Simulated assay, not measured.
Amino acid sequence: MIYFDNSATTPVWPEVLATFDQVTKQIWGNPSSLHKLGEPAWNLLEQSRRQIAQLLGVLPSEIIFTSGGSEGDNWVIKGTALAKRQFGKHIITSSVEHAAVRNAMAQLEELGFEVTYLPVDQTGRVKPADVQAALRSDTILVSIMAVNNEIGTIQPIKEIGEILQAYPRVHFMVDAVQALGKGLDDVVFSDRVDFATFSAHKFHALRGTGFVYAKQGRQLAPLINGGGQERGQRSGTENVAGFAAMARAIRLVKEKEAQSVKQEQAVRAAIFKHLQQFDHVHLFSDLTPQFASHVLCFAIEGVRGETVVHAFEDHDIYISTTSACSSKKQAEASTLAAMKVPTRLAESAVRISLGDQNTLADAVAFNQAFDQVYAGFQKIID
């Protein structure tokens, strides 16, 4: 089997699962309890927080545990709206954000907030000048993703941050779900970024765990109220075992990050160069530094994306139709639509998303399978 759908989810590493299993069995007290069973749970929770903060170069107090990327996106967006609504109701985002951001914005629009959706160029990138032009006196939030989940575009977060230096009251959020372990920490944690969201199952930890980086001094209204956990920001009994496992996953990811990125780049390049040879193949991703190392989006003209996915599944190779969050709905890829890619091509788009476990041998096997798949579609595409 060759698994090329790592942007949807990653396999849990054995070491990470071992940590979860050990903590679940041995440290099962509620971290809020005052007795001797609660104390080790609390200590491990805070140890995990400190480890993540150290690995990412931030303060432990700036790490807030969540259930994943969707919760994090919703919390920062709606928490900003609640906390800053007296200062304004204008928000800026891009036209290529993940559904968790888009749908949260849509809900705020129903509540009277105004959202500006910035266009993108032919590579799926926002122009910093467009951010500058969209800023108003009542703008309270700018939300731009770090890495596009459909085609892999890296957004100009640093340049946007430089613009926002002149607007200190505006929150700047980055959806960084596709960025951890991809050599992009200097982008995600640049000086002006106030909030960044992460999901653990994208880096070999367990589903249902994640965290938000929330810069010290920036305030959000909580969305989940209750017992006041996470310093009152996110109530609910903490998943100590899950967060400890997540901390271990991040440590393992960071230890091998440079080598993993280099390996992903080599695998992606081998596939990219092979696909370039075919007349009816359209490549939406590129090998330039503006694209992350692990995502490659392409289309076989005239063949629907889901048909291509199943054709590769017959070869025991697993890819996806752009975002896993929308693939079963058979919706046109929102990023490609924003890039003004014709609908017939957008409906044919598929995504390869690599992980550190993928090798050049996988690329060779994929290219051989592609030749057979392409030949099988020859009557359709000619």
Rank of each mutant, 00 (worst) to 15 (best):
I2H: 02
A8K: 06
T10G: 05
V12L: 05
V12N: 03
W13M: 08
E15A: 09
V16S: 08
V16K: 02
V23S: 08
P31A: 11
S32D: 15
K36Y: 00
L37I: 00
N43P: 01
L45T: 12
V58Y: 03
I64R: 03
E71S: 02
V76H: 04
K78A: 11
T80N: 09
R85V: 10
K89T: 12
T93F: 09
S95C: 11
R102T: 14
N103W: 06
M105H: 06
Q107I: 07
L108Y: 07
L108E: 07
F113P: 00
V120F: 12
V126H: 04
K127T: 11
A129G: 11
A129E: 15
Q132S: 14
A133K: 04
I140S: 04
L141K: 00
V142E: 08
V147Q: 01
N149K: 07
G152I: 07
T153A: 15
I157K: 00
G161S: 07
G161M: 05
R169W: 13
D175V: 09
V177T: 12
Q178I: 12
L180Y: 09
L180T: 05
S190C: 13
S190T: 13
D194A: 05
A196P: 01
S199R: 02
H204N: 06
T209E: 09
V212T: 05
L220Q: 04
A221R: 00
G227Q: 06
Q229M: 05
Q229P: 01
T237I: 03
G242V: 10
A245K: 02
V253G: 01
K256P: 02
E257M: 03
E264Y: 03
V267F: 08
A269G: 05
I271A: 05
K273F: 11
H274E: 15
F278R: 01
F278M: 06
H280N: 15
H282I: 14
S285P: 04
T288K: 00
P289Y: 09
A292Q: 01
F298L: 07
G302N: 07
E306M: 14
K329S: 14
K329E: 15
K340Q: 11
P342A: 08
V350N: 10
R351F: 13
R351M: 13
G355K: 00
L360W: 06
D362Q: 00
A365T: 14
Q372I: 12
V373H: 00
V373D: 10
